[in-house]
């Protein structure tokens, strides 16, 4: 038993105690994938601690449900990695404070006026294909719906995945009252609906499906990290659904100045310059010519579809019912 206690102590000790920074603590809640050496977390921590004279403590997990559970007793001072489409409930909780940032100069394809949630990177939903396996990809959304049924795609479930939810709102925005018919046409091509993004993307790279629901920026990873230029996003003239990841300040923070400083940092050239290759999506405030060349050369849709959080929340339940009515027979 004593051995067990000791061993337990040993494993619970942080393995990499990056030189403890001095000064007050600022607690940042972030999604799980942030913290790995391949995610943006370590760079954010190092970059911010260099200028803040503080210790940035990153706590990872399912950010929004956790904040909601904790309420105003949360230890978080700032959060990062919330998604558009789920911010209404977060806003209504009254737990978040205005970010106080000047929104001029953001490099988003849409107008952003939110004074609480601050975007730090963005992308759009898109179907990714492998040019060596699919010579003639659909060139419009309608083409995809009309494609022969042996074109197989994988999508994500809107009930468990944020990209699945984007797809739901994408179809509803493009097809409106005809969304049910659109889903009916798409259904025979949907090989499977996965609970999360990674299962679907794995099936695509394994060659099990021809196209996968992902993001317009997904090809950047393959080019940048693997020198593989065969993965492309199919660009549709009907438009692509916008999705941004957001940062916000907690109203209950006991470090409001540091929290404000962190918001400054999110839009600073240092942060914005590293986010493209750390999180494989477009930075929210960085002119295109400062992006890595291959990133700036990615195919771009002409139209970006963006729903306000109220529209998204109003649309979610009826759209989900429609989707279920087609897929759950």
């Amino acid at each position: 038993m004593r051995f067990a206690a000791l061993a337990l102590l040993a494993v619970t000790m942080p393995a990499t105690n990056a030189a403890m920074a001095a000064g007050p603590e600022l607690t940042l809640y972030a999604p799980d994938y942030f913290a790995t050496e391949w995610g943006p977390g370590p760079k954010i921590e190092a970059g911010f601690e260099k200028i803040c004279g503080c210790d940035l403590v990153m706590v990872t997990g399912d950010v929004l449900p956790r904040i909601m559970l904790e309420g105003d007793r949360t230890e978080a001072d700032v959060v990062i990695g919330l998604n558009t489409d789920t911010t209404l409930r977060a806003r209504e909780s009254g737990l978040f404070a205005p970010h106080g940032q000047d929104l001029n100069g953001l490099t988003l394809p849409v107008t952003w006026t939110d004074d609480t949630f601050l975007p730090f990177n963005w992308s759009e939903t898109a179907f990714i294909y492998d040019a060596t396996r699919l010579a003639n990809p659909p060139s419009t959304f309608q083409d995809l719906l009309d494609a022969p049924d042996d074109l197989k795609i994988a999508i994500q479930d809107p009930r468990s995945s944020i990209s699945g939810l984007s797809m739901l709102l994408w179809v509803k925005s493009v097809y409106g009252d005809k969304a049910v018919e659109a889903w009916q046409k798409l259904r025979p091509k949907v090989l499977t609906v996965t609970p999360g993004w990674s299962e679907a993307y794995g099936m695509f790279t394994e060659g099990e499906v021809d196209m996968v629901l992902s993001f317009t920026t997904s090809p950047a990873y393959h080019i940048g990290a693997e020198q593989d230029t065969t993965k492309r996003a199919a660009i549709f003239p009907e438009g692509h659904y916008f999705m941004a990841e957001l940062a916000a300040k907690l109203a209950s923070s006991d470090q409001p100045e540091l929290a404000a400083k962190f918001m400054d940092y999110v839009l600073s050239p240092d942060f914005q310059g590293m986010i493209a290759e750390a999180n494989w999506s477009y930075p929210s405030k960085l002119p295109r010519n400062q992006l890595p060349a291959y990133f700036a050369a990615l195919d771009r849709p002409e139209r970006t579809i963006f729903l306000s959080e109220t529209e998204a929340e109003e649309m979610r339940k009826p759209a989900l019912e429609e989707w279920l009515s087609v897929f759950a027979q």
Binding site: D32, Y33, G39, T60, D62, W280
Partner: peptide
């Protein structure tokens, strides 16, 4: 995992998921 994950001291299965979510499917 959802609420009790220490992503910086991950267990092996958690690391596997992190790899997958960072596009690193070969490593995963």
């Amino acid at each position: 995992i959802t609420l009790f994950a220490d992503s910086r001291n991950p267990t092996l299965p958690l690391l596997l998921y992190q790899l997958m979510n960072s596009y690193r499917l070969d490593d995963a």
